[in-house]
Design a protein around this nucleic acid. Structure first.
Lengths: 150, 150
DNA sequence: ACCGATTTGACCAACACTGACCAATTATCG
DNA sequence: CGATAATTGGTCAGTGTTGGTCAAATCGGT
């Protein structure tokens, strides 16, 4: 068990004690574990991604922070299934199927569904080179899904 | 929450109590919050910009003032203004200003606002090369806005 | 030895705050 | 009336404080 696992479990302990929200200072964490600050980013990106069921927000500058939220609730199972089923690439028709599924399972209403498909459609993503579009769509989809149950 | 946030919320309180018009004296505000006068300008330019939905007028000399007004308009007008103002490139902080403006004008609720910012944030757009991200963000933002009035 | 995961550090970006200097407007005095 | 002083806000570049990125170096297991 390396340092990254130790840091990750420290963060999870905080989440357990705070109803699923951890507000951290990167430099303070790095100091506590005697590592470089960027290792905190590594831990977060490898262990607290949407695939793992977390939302991460941050702010720079004075009073900056990193906030990690663990989502919960009855809809979590379904959402996590979709996020993991999406994989690293997501084309429009598959995305559309996921969104229909989310609608049928009362995860989102009709209005949300329209909005989400507007975001995931090729029109909205035309500034992205074709060969990158499906991976960008997958990322965006995952962030939408995880935020739906936050 | 730093001093700038405190000053901003003080101004917003005034706006709430005065039908959307706050007339302030820079030096008096600076004195009240024990900061340098130029910090007032900083607060105004970072939190009361046109993107945030405000108009700022001022006058120097004896009897000088800074007047901050909330912009009004129909939902469709607001949406069209934002789409036009977004242009071809949209950075995260400008996007954030637009979204909070949309929220303040009841175009979207708090949940929508969070969802939209999750989509427009750098995390969700990681798969897009940095130099293309702002144009992709602008496209996505416009599609969202259009959808709000469709 | 190879390969993925981890660790590191140099460089970057965002946000907050400050102070010296500038500009505009009004008040006062001769 | 006109010059000058007083009063008010504006600008901008600099400093400090945080977090982010990326690629090279290292570690550990097969």
């Amino acid at each position: 068990m390396g340092m990254s696992d130790i840091i990750a479990s420290f963060i999870k302990d905080i989440l357990d004690q705070t109803n699923g929200i951890a507000e951290l200072q990167r430099s303070e964490l790095a100091e506590r574990f005697k590592c470089v600050p960027s290792q905190i980013n590594y831990v977060i990106s490898t262990r607290f991604s949407p695939e793992h069921g977390y939302i991460v927000e941050s702010r720079r500058g004075g009073g900056g922070y990193i906030r990690i939220s663990r989502v919960a609730g009855t809809k979590k199972q379904l959402v996590m299934q979709m996020i993991n089923a999406a994989g690293y690439e997501l084309d429009v028709s598959t995305a559309s199927a996921f969104v229909s599924n989310a609608f049928n399972n009362d995860l989102i209403d009709r209005r949300d569904a329209k909005l989400i498909m507007a975001v995931l459609g090729d029109n909205a993503l035309k500034a992205i080179p074709t060969e990158l579009r499906n991976s960008a769509r997958a990322d965006i989809f995952k962030h939408i899904m995880i935020n739906l149950i936050a």
